[in-house]
Amino acid sequence: MSDPRPHKIPESVLVVIHTPALEVLLIRRADAELFWQSVTGSKDHPHESFHDTAVREVREETGIDALAPGGVLRDWQLENVYAIYPQWQHRYAPGVWRNTEHLFSLQVPAGTPVVLNPREHTAFAWLPWREAAERCFSPSNAEAILLLPRVAVQPS
């Protein structure tokens, strides 16, 4: 039986959510229990902006409103291009092997509540940034977290 869902668009966002103290939120994938990551997700349609994709994915995956007072969503103006993992290749159109990922960070107040979508993620943890980078399964996600002290918005 074929999958009725449309193919994923190979343009996505990575959003590193963190507190002012650089505690990073990681979420564990429901379909790969050993995979801890930041918020990620593809555009819903080709004309959706990366900013709108980031805001939508943060809300869908964590319940956090990226535009709420006290939060700072920052577009890093950086992209990663990588090969799509074989276990997720079936979600894309035939012949699509690479994805372009646009990087963001979202600074939120300490204690911001997290409400996971259980179809996507089964657990979350707030970790110091270095520890979060070590726990990530994705090298590009770990690299983004290691950049955080240089690009994150800090309180004035």
Rank of each mutant, 00 (worst) to 15 (best):
V72C: 14
Q87V: 07
E101A: 11
R135C: 12
G111F: 09
R98A: 11
E134K: 00
Q154M: 13
E120I: 03
H102N: 04
E134P: 00
A66F: 09
W126F: 14
P139L: 09
P113E: 15
R150A: 00
N117H: 14
L73G: 05
Q154I: 05
A142L: 09
Q154L: 12
A152S: 09
G70E: 02
H90L: 02
V114D: 05
L127Q: 10
A152D: 06
A110E: 09
E134W: 01
Q87F: 12
R74C: 15
R150E: 00
Q107T: 14
G71P: 02
A142S: 13
D75V: 08
P118W: 04
S105I: 04
P94S: 03
T62M: 09
E143N: 05
V72T: 15
I84L: 05
E131M: 02
W126L: 13
V108T: 04
Q89T: 06
A93S: 07
R130K: 14
E79L: 11
L146K: 11
T122A: 04
P128W: 11
A123S: 15
A66M: 08
G70C: 07
Y85V: 14
R130F: 02
Q107W: 11
W97H: 13
G71E: 03
V115F: 13
P94F: 02
R98K: 10
V151P: 01
Q77A: 14
W76S: 10
P139F: 01
N141Y: 09
W129L: 01
G111H: 09
A83G: 06
Y92H: 03
N80E: 10
A66V: 03
P109G: 07
E143V: 06
T100G: 04
P118H: 07
A132C: 11
R130L: 11
P149E: 00
P149F: 00
G70L: 06
L103R: 14
R150K: 04
T100S: 10
S140T: 11
S105Y: 01
P113T: 07
A133K: 05
P149N: 02
A132T: 05
N141E: 07
H102F: 06
W129Y: 15
W88H: 09
G111R: 14
S138E: 01
V81E: 14
R74S: 15
H90W: 03
R74V: 15
A152N: 04
N99W: 01
V151H: 03
A144D: 03
A152W: 00
R98T: 07
V153T: 10
E131V: 02
A123Y: 01
L106M: 08
H90T: 04
R119Q: 14
G71D: 06
L106T: 06
L67S: 12
R135G: 08
L147S: 04
P69R: 15
F124W: 13
A68K: 09
I64V: 14
P128V: 08
E120W: 15
R130G: 05
R130S: 08
E134N: 05
G63H: 06
E120A: 13
A93Y: 00
Q107D: 13
A132N: 10
W129G: 02
A144S: 10
E134S: 05
W126A: 13
P86M: 04
A132S: 10
E101W: 00
R74I: 15
R119T: 07
P86V: 08
T62V: 10
H90E: 07
R74A: 13
A125M: 13
P118V: 08
E79V: 15
E143F: 14
G70A: 10
E79P: 05
A144G: 08
R150S: 01
H121I: 06
